[in-house]
């Protein structure tokens, strides 16, 4: 269906871990291809391997076998620092538990990925990103001074500020009440549409999945649809 060169591609990706009961296969031979600008929801029951798959696709973890390409780079051929560099330049994250650096203010948190990627004018870009999530007024607040919804908005600003090729979101509304979660999803998809970023989101929430162009279900480590 998608003619353009995929921005994210997985080939026979398997992740096994050893446990007291023997080897446990968490992700089993997953093949996946995501086109630029596409939005994909990964859904499945708890323990089905959603988060592990996300970690493998984003290069946060290494598969036991198989290969992963992200924006032209083969992640599985890179070492940890090489993958970190790919993430710095091409990837944004939004996490369930926000994961802001407690030592940094809102604007500093947003500046962080720009600084790590060595990009200029980090402060201006971060201010713009905070403006986009409507948090300019709280830019100098520390994470502990912000509500859950506000923290997630900062995290979203941080994810978009590098204009990433792919944005990974892990249960972005999992720690928020329903109304706030809805507003966060609204914001995420609006920004996604505006910046033509590819979105890969792991979720339990059918409402979130419905907003995506494609839904992938994972069961016992295998893609079923």
């Amino acid at each position: 269906m998608h003619i353009a060169e995929p921005v994210l591609r997985a080939e026979k990706v398997t992740k096994e871990v050893s446990s007291p009961e023997g080897t446990l296969t968490i992700v089993a031979g997953v093949d996946l291809s995501v086109a630029p600008g596409e939005s994909v929801a990964i859904i499945g029951a708890s323990g089905a391997g959603k988060s592990t798959l996300l970690a493998l696709l984003a290069g946060l973890d290494e598969p036991t076998s198989g290969r992963v390409w992200l924006n032209g780079s083969e992640l599985t051929a890179l070492d940890e620092d090489g993958r970190a560099q790919v993430r710095a330049n091409h990837v944004g994250f939004v996490f369930q538990s926000f994961h802001l650096v407690p030592a940094l203010t809102a604007i500093e948190n947003v500046m962080l990925p720009l600084e790590l990627a060595g990009k200029p004018n980090a402060r201006e870009a971060a201010a713009e990103a905070l403006e986009a999530v409507n948090l300019s007024a709280r830019r100098h607040h520390y994470p502990r001074q912000l509500s859950g919804g506000e923290q997630q908005r900062v995290a979203i600003a941080r994810a978009f500020v590098t204009r990433p090729a792919v944005l990974f979101a892990d249960e972005p509304t999992g720690n928020l009440d329903a109304a706030t979660g809805e507003r966060i999803i609204e914001l995420l998809f609006d920004l996604n549409a505006a910046s033509r970023t590819t979105l890969v989101v792991v979720t339990h929430d059918p409402a979130v999945a419905r907003r995506c162009e494609r839904t992938i279900r994972i069961e016992a480590g295998r893609l079923v649809a």
């Binding site: 620092d81 970190a84 993430r87 710095a88 994250f93 650096v101 962080l112 990925p113 790590l116 990627a117």
Partner: peptide, 10 residues
């Protein structure tokens, strides 16, 4: 977190 958004080990 720092590593996930691109910080190197060093």
């Amino acid at each position: 977190l720092m590593k996930s958004i691109g910080a190197s080990q060093n």
